[in-house]
Design a protein around this nucleic acid. Structure first.
Length: 561
DNA sequence: CTAGGGTTAG
């Protein structure tokens, strides 16, 4: 720094140095400064009489290398205002990257206009960073538009598009682009593969994921840290914990993300002990856990009912100086609530250092309901409705609270309020992968091309399930309708459609794997157990929280969920 | 001096 200061003093005392003939050497100084101390580099930039674009770009890059900062965008604004120097492709690449890191949508859109105006709108780097910016802002369709307008696309552009779809869970689209890429003669590399694999993880598309794993080996694609981590996560999220473990064990180097993905994998399988053992091994391997690792550890404790261990890891986390995030608090509240310690959960929430979010309050209300603490539950649920009047979950929670104490008058009042305000619940949605395509079933939506066959088959299944002595759990249906209709409504639950489709489309030893966006209801849980026995099929359901592996009439969660 | 990647509560 002292050398830099001296150089800076020299520039200040000899104004002629900042003349354009010295632009190159000044750029060198800036470059060095930006690397060491961006704020200093920025000051230096502002003192130049006529800085060139290289100087601007260098400072922007300096800011990008540090923590998220709006500085590159501010610098761009300054560039526009001063009308000189003109931006080049590097400038736009840096600014778009900054916008995508900050998800600064409006700013990015403005920059997009400037890029077009400057005539650089059709440059490969500008377009790729722009495409990435839009998808990072979850505006995938805008990203797609940029992508479609590109007259040349290399592996980076294709990967950016695939990653954009993958991040928002548009799995079929991601895979479609992946196939189009190969058809277009562009070879996927390890970055492409990571995006496609994580799309499979999200969708629970095991067969596709396996195929991608083979593809990597067959085509000699570099199996680096990121690829392996994505594979571990994919196998774990598809319920194949053995395969996840095999990949993990074979990794030559593992960082915190790699360990975390395996720990989280055990956690969602309900394998609490394995998750905690692995966390200990991570410590022995001297890899510093990050906040995601702790989420995995704490949620493993919650899923395993390990209250004492959860407390232990919580305090060790605080002792290490890790600042707990909302997710960590959420895990702890969940830990207490699952163990039916509603009072403790409540005290814990009261002691939080940050304001609890609605999700945490909802976890509490569910626990109050289970522990018959109706008054408290009602109070919190009503506050939730005030806080988030557009969120259907809150109304459903309050009405189910009333339902559980048979207060039908108040229950229908909440239901009516919900209807009057036109608030729609998030529909249940389940998916199943058949022959490389992910089929989605939304509750009450019969638009699937094979809907007729599925309906007929569902009728047969429901007949057999009832004949076997299953008592439908009508309380799972909150609609204010007769029992017959309630029973029908239960058979419209999306996971049953997906399971039925799986039974129709695959043969006996094949496991049926279904992914659901919500939690499975108690009746579906019971029915799926029965189906696994009646049809002699292993059925694996990944719900919003965790895995359920049904076989021979029992579930791996042992009804603790 | 430029663009694309892995882990994340309920």
């Amino acid at each position: 720094m002292r050398v830099l200061d001296q150089i800076h003093a020299l520039i200040l005392t000899h104004p002629h140095i900042s003349h354009s003939t010295n632009a190159f050497s000044l750029s060198k100084v800036l470059c060095f400064a930006a690397y060491k101390n961006v704020q200093y580099a920025k000051r230096l930039l502002f003192q130049l009489r006529s800085p060139n674009i290289f100087a601007y770009n260098t400072v922007m890059r300096g800011f990008l290398q540090h923590s998220p900062s709006p500085e590159p965008i501010l610098l761009f604004r300054r560039l526009i205002r001063s009308k000189f120097p003109a931006s080049n492709t590097f400038t736009f690449a840096f600014v778009f990257k900054s916008c995508s890191i900050l998800t600064a949508f409006d700013e990015g859109r403005q920059v997009h206009k400037h890029a077009i105006a400057s005539g650089l709108g059709d440059n490969l780097f500008v377009q790729t960073s722009l495409l990435n910016f839009y998808t990072k802002c979850e505006e995938v369709e805008l990203g797609r538009k940029v992508f479609d307008e590109m007259f040349q696309r290399n592996v980076v552009a294709w990967s950016a598009m695939i990653g954009g779809y993958a991040r928002v869970g548009k799995v079929n689209e991601a895979l479609e682009v992946f196939r189009a890429m190969q058809k277009g003669g562009v070879e996927p590399d390890e970055v492409t593969m990571v995006s496609v694999i994580s799309a499979c993880a999200m969708a629970g598309a095991l067969d596709l994921g396996k195929w991608l794993h083979m593809f990597i080996d067959k085509n000699g694609i570099k199996n680096d840290l990121e690829v392996s981590t994505a594979l571990v996560s994919m196998y774990a999220k598809c319920g194949c914990i053995e395969k996840a473990w095999a990949v993990f064990e074979a990794m030559p180097v593992r960082d915190a993300k790699a360990w975390s993905s395996m720990i989280v994998g055990f956690s969602i399988m309900g394998m609490a002990k394995e998750a905690l053992d692995l966390f200990e091994r991570m410590g022995e391997a001297q890899v510093e856990p990050n906040h995601v690792t702790l989420i995995g550890v704490l949620s493993a404790c919650a899923h395993g009912g390990l209250v004492a261990e959860g407390r232990k890891y919580w305090s060790s986390m605080l002792n290490c100086g890790m600042e707990p995030s909302m997710e960590h608090y959420g895990c702890m509240v969940d830990l207490f609530c699952r163990a039916n310690k509603a009072e403790e959960a409540y005290e814990f929430v009261a002691s939080m250092r940050i304001a609890p979010n609605p999700a945490i309050w909802r976890t509490l209300v569910v626990s109050f309901k289970k522990n018959k603490m109706f008054h408290k539950g009602e109070e919190v649920a009503k506050q939730l409705i005030q806080l988030e009047p557009q969120n259907a979950e809150n109304y459903i929670l309050l009405s189910s609270l009333y339902a559980s104490k048979s207060d039908w008058v108040k229950m229908s009042r909440v239901r009516r309020q919900m209807r009057d305000r036109r608030i729609k619940a998030v529909p249940g949605c389940s998916s199943i992968e058949i022959n490389g395509h992910v089929h989605e079933f939304v509750m009450g939506d019969w638009s699937h091309p094979e809907a007729k066959a599925i309906t007929e088959f569902i009728r047969e299944v429901s007949g057999r399930v009832q004949a076997s002595g299953h008592e439908p759990w009508i309380a799972s249906v909150l609609q204010n309708v007769g029992n017959g209709e309630k029973l029908d409504a239960l058979w419209e639950h999306s996971e049953r459609l997906a399971i039925a489709y799986g039974l129709l489309k695959t043969k006996a030893p094949v496991t049926i794997r279904v992914v659901k966006n919500l939690r499975v209801c108690e009746d579906c849980h019971e029915v799926t157990k029965t189906i696994s026995k009646l049809y002699d099929r292993e059925i694996v359901v990944r719900d919003r929280i965790r895995f359920h592996k049904f076989a021979n009439g029992v579930c791996s969660c042992q009804d603790f969920w």
